[in-house]
C-alpha cells in the first residue's frame, strides 16, 4: 500500500475540507480519517478503524463520516485525523483501541481534544 508524503496528506486534507464543507449541507460535519498504509496496518490500524466504527455506531453519531488514507509514516502509527468545525484539524498518533474509544467519547461527542495523544505530522526524510 502507498506511503503518502506530507504534501500528499495536505492535498488529501484540502480535498477532504472541501468535501467536509459539502457534507455540512447534509449535516455531516465531522470527518475521521484513519491512516491504513502498510505501516499503519502493521501497527494495528485495522483494529483502530473497527473500534471507531463500532463506537460511532453505538453513539449514533449521525454527523460523523469515517474514511481511510495511506501511510502516515514516519509519524507514530496508527494515525487518526479528526476534522470538525468546532476543533479544526487534530491529528492523533500511536492510537490503540482504548484511545480510539476516547477519541469518539471525548473528542467527537464532547469536543475535548486528547492533548497527550496529539501529534504534528512530520514528513519522511528523503
Amino acid at each position: 500500500m502507498a506511503k503518502l508524503s506530507l504534501s500528499d496528506l495536505h492535498a488529501i486534507r484540502d480535498r477532504e475540507e472541501k468535501n467536509l464543507r459539502k457534507r455540512n449541507i447534509h449535516g455531516r460535519d465531522v470527518h475521521v480519517v484513519v491512516a491504513m498504509g502498510t505501516s499503519g496496518i502493521n501497527a494495528g490500524a485495522k483494529l483502530v478503524l473497527n473500534t471507531i466504527a463500532d463506537e460511532v455506531e453505538k453513539a449514533g453519531l449521525e454527523n460523523v463520516i469515517i474514511t481511510q488514507t495511506g501511510s502516515a509514516a514516519p509519524n507514530p502509527e496508527p494515525v487518526v485525523e479528526v476534522f470538525s468545525p468546532k476543533t479544526g484539524l487534530v491529528v492523533y498518533g500511536g492510537v490503540d483501541a482504548e484511545t480510539a474509544r476516547r477519541i469518539v467519547s471525548e473528542h467527537l461527542q464532547n469536543g475535548k481534544i486528547l492533548e497527550e495523544k496529539r501529534i504534528e505530522l512530520t514528513e519522511k526524510e528523503q
Binding site: A53, E57, A59, L61, E62, I66, T67
Partner: peptide, 12 residues
C-alpha cells in the same frame, strides 16, 4: 456502506 452510523449497523 460502513462509513457512518446506520450504514455500519446495516453492513454488520
Amino acid at each position: 456502506v460502513p462509513d457512518r452510523a446506520g450504514g455500519i449497523r446495516r453492513f454488520k
